[in-house]
Structure formats: C-alpha cells, structure tokens
C-alpha cells in the first residue's frame, strides 16, 4: 500500500521535473522548483514512516525552512531587488 503511494509521489516528481526542464521562462522553472520542494518535504516525512526513523522528521522540517528561504531569495533575485 505505502509503496504504491510512493510510486504515485514519484510520478508527481517526474511531472514537476519535466516542467522544470521544459519551462519556457525562468519563472516557470522556479515555480516547478517551489512545488518540488513541497513534494520533497512531504516525501521525507512519508519515508520516515516507511523506515520507522524519527530523524527524517527533523530533516524534513529543516529542509522545508531552507527551501522556503531559497525560493524567496530566487524570487527576489529574479525581480532584481536582492
């Protein structure tokens, strides 16, 4: 059951990555990246449950915070106001 869900998540990551590669403009790619990080945060929590390791929750929390800051920085940089 849980492995089937992980496969569906992998499909989601593939679609996002495809948009990241195809995206005609820079902001399309950043939008795809933003959603990839959200999917990854959820995926780390799910992997923590699969492997029964609590440490994955901490990793996911820090990953979420850092990716939020990263996407904000990219957005400001694109706008030219960094």
């Amino acid at each position: 059951m849980i492995y089937f869900l992980l496969i569906v998540m992998l499909l989601a990551i593939i679609f996002c990555a495809a948009r990241g590669l195809l995206g005609p403009t820079a902001s399309d790619r950043i939008v795809a990246l933003d959603n990839l990080t959200t999917i990854t945060t959820a995926g780390l929590v799910l992997l923590g449950f699969v492997f029964q390791r609590f440490i994955y929750i901490d990793v996911s929390l820090i990953y979420g915070v850092l990716s939020f800051i990263g996407v904000l920085t990219l957005a400001r940089y694109m706008e030219g106001g960094l």
Binding site: M9, A12, R19, T25, V31, A42, L46
Partner: peptide
Amino acid sequence: VTIGVLFLFLGALGIFRMPDV
C-alpha cells in the same frame, strides 16, 4: 496519506498542463 499523495500528483499534473506561469 492517500488523499494527500493524490493531491500532490494532481498539483504536479496541473503544473505540467496549464498554459502560463
């Protein structure tokens, strides 16, 4: 968890199909 993963997939599909940023 099932509902969540399903919506993650739909979101990714939306990113792939929609016409602009």
